[in-house]
């Protein structure tokens, strides 16, 4: 066992982990941040996307130890300070960009990462960027709309 320290959603945390403990497992089981979801075991589905030092990462592809001393943001850290939904989150609700909600945390984190790189993504760029996030419910249509809506909101 080894000790990891990181800043998660603005809060300093630490915990004991095995060398094989994935960041996703540490977030879910060690920190009880169960908004990060595990949908596959081949790093394909993207339900576990979080931001590590500002970059979107599938947290199942990283050991918790690798993330030591990093700054991590999960879906639980995406709301505004007053608890209201952040712009990307609100756009997902406004455009019905989620149904069962299981892929949603990863989708929101990917969408936020895209918009941090590109404030005016076209539809094709959005669809291309989401290649690593699988949704089985929405057919992606309203996720794309939500991201377009969030982009407009952020640009306003």
């Amino acid at each position: 066992m080894a000790t990891v320290h990181m800043v998660v959603n603005g809060r300093e945390v630490s915990g004991e982990v095995e060398g094989r403990t994935l960041l996703s497992d540490f977030l879910r089981n060690g920190l009880k941040l169960t908004g990060t979801h595990i949908g596959c075991d081949t790093s394909q589905c993207g339900a576990c996307v979080v931001h590590v030092n500002g970059k979107a990462i599938k947290s199942c592809t990283m050991f918790a130890l690798e993330a030591s001393d990093s700054t991590v943001t999960t879906i639980e850290g995406m709301a505004n300070e007053d608890g209201s939904l952040g712009i990307v989150q609100q756009a997902f609700q406004d455009h019905h960009g989620l149904q069962c909600g299981f892929c949603t945390p990863g989708m929101v984190m990917s969408a936020a990462a895209l918009l941090s790189e590109n404030l005016t993504p076209g539809e094709a760029e959005i669809r291309d960027y989401l290649e690593g996030n699988i949704c089985r419910c929405t057919g992606y249509q309203n996720i794309v709309k939500a991201i377009q809506g969030a982009a407009e909101e952020l640009a306003a």
Partner: peptide
Amino acid sequence: RREDVRFLTGNGRY
């Protein structure tokens, strides 16, 4: 949707 806020904030209970 009423469901959305908990799913969008990581507060769903699966």
